[in-house]
Design a protein around this nucleic acid. Structure first.
Ligand SMILES: [Zn+2]
Ligand SMILES: [Zn+2]
Ligand SMILES: [Zn+2]
Ligand SMILES: [Zn+2]
Lengths: 279, 279
DNA sequence: AAGTGTTCAACGGGTTCA
DNA sequence: TGAACCCGTTGAACACTT
């Protein structure tokens, strides 16, 4: 099924191609559509999620349960870049186009909702609070603002971002990830976060919060142990604490950086071989 | 030997039984021993008897806060994880995501139909620890929640890192399938299980325990050698130890995942042919 | 020292095939 | 049914420039 399809494409493309032109268009369209439609918010959650009862499930027939899945839906947002890979491994997709313009591009896609603005706001806020109690549960209230994260430890208060306010530039003291509460080494994309949230943000920020769907209530309280289960709420939290997608290098910048590294490497090599003056 | 037997089962519940001839012998023996039919167990028997239910601790919540279960994850627009492989996901399902990406072209065709749907995927999780003990017994606490979580604890001391030390790995210890006692490699659908029980659960969980009928007394003690003879008790045990059907990808999710993989494959191919920029 | 990106092995989802 | 395998995601380490 799909294969065939793809292949065709291949052929199509093959020829001339460049991907770009065509795609770009598609992308845009897609985005637009999605954006509007979706927009919204967090889903609600189905049922169980949280604590599920375990025990035998269905009693009767169950037939399906199926559905439920928490997940369900999604939308994609789409996104731009990605990177490819490098040498050894293969993997990753690449974005083809990517390069394209950095900035604008991003904005378009990313969440249409908030182009480039401070990310936080809007949607994100909502999620923020959590309810801890169980996610699902309900609470869906959105507004409450109460932050607290509870979780004691972790919590960092997002809103304020104490840090700066406090006084000097970066606060430093906190060495706790504002997203999940794990140990942080310093600032990443303009907010204090742990290494995993740093990597997560780099990988997913460009897609935007709307590209993901929360399998729970949309108000997950992120912590070290559950951070990997809800990308949407995790990403939202990242934006909430001030992480900025603009700090992520664009494909071009990364290319540039790599180029520079290679040059330096070459230079060092030559120097060591005495083929170049040592500086 | 057993192979043949198994196949028959397929009939599914069905009427009463029919299992195979081969078994009958076993059955008879058993019956004799036990007396009435009820009560018996599948061929070989093991030791334990009944089953004590319980799950691994992980289940629930943590003490505080949150807890939530991690489950499913997100879906993202694409999702996370995996697929078809997953995991990792896993992942944890990213490059991402295709969703967006590039290949739009693909999308056009492929799914233009359903553009935005929410696909999702999965995720992963891991809970840590636990395991050990085995099932039975024990402890039944449920609460502790996710191991990982442990959170609570953790909260305080970060150091802990629950479990694993390194990071994510799980706990280490040797893992034993909570369902049949065979060797386990890690978590599957949120509980430690062997590869065969993983496949079994994926294939049958959606139908529900009630969809099957126990040929014995309904209280089979599952072990490596008899696990294939009573689907009902095996499935029940799966749920008991905490395996969650929500973790099974839905048809849509699987589709999405496959699509993503195909796209990546195409891209890789094109790259290797130099028809696309390598990133 | 900071703060980007890169690498890589583990994880855990599905898929194949005998 | 289940062993073997595929592969996206995650996060700890690490490489580099500034
Ligand atoms: Zn974090
Ligand atoms: Zn969420
Ligand atoms: Zn097993
Ligand atoms: Zn039984």
């Amino acid at each position: 099924n799909t294969l065939t399809i793809m292949q065709q494409q291949q052929s199509q493309q093959g020829s001339g191609n460049d991907y770009d032109p065509l795609f770009s268009i598609d992308l845009l369209n897609v985005e637009l559509l999605e954006g509007t439609e979706q927009q919204q918010q967090p889903p609600l959650l189905p049922q169980q999620q949280q604590q599920p009862p375990h025990h035998y499930p269905d009693s009767s027939d169950s037939s399906f349960a199926v559905s439920l899945s928490p997940l369900s839906s999604c939308s994609s947002g789409f996104s731009p870049h990605s990177f490819g890979h490098h040498q050894q491994q293969q993997q990753q997709p690449m974005p083809l186009f990517l390069e394209e313009q950095g900035p604008d591009f991003l904005q378009l896609n990313a969440d249409s909702t908030s182009p480039h603005q401070p990310p936080f706001l809007q949607q994100q806020q909502q999620r923020q609070q959590q309810t801890q109690a169980q996610a699902c549960s309900g609470a869906f209230k959105t507004e409450p603002s109460v932050p607290d994260d509870v979780v004691g430890a972790a919590a960092a208060a997002p809103a304020v971002q104490p840090g700066k306010a406090g006084g000097q530039r970066h606060p430093r003291d906190d060495k706790i990830c504002g997203v999940c509460g794990d140990k942080a080494l310093g600032f990443n994309f303009d907010a204090v976060s742990c290494e995993s949230c740093k990597a997560f943000f780099r990988r997913n920020a460009v897609k935007g919060v709307e590209a993901f769907k929360c399998p729970y209530s949309g108000a997950c309280s992120i912590d070290v142990s559950n951070r990997r289960f809800c990308k949407r709420c995790r990403l939202a939290k990242c934006f909430d604490i001030g992480m900025k997608r603009e700090y992520i290098l664009t494909e071009e910048e990364k290319l540039e950086k790599r180029k520079k590294i290679d040059q330096n490497k070459l230079i060092r090599t030559l120097e060591s071989l005495q083929l170049l003056p040592r500086t």
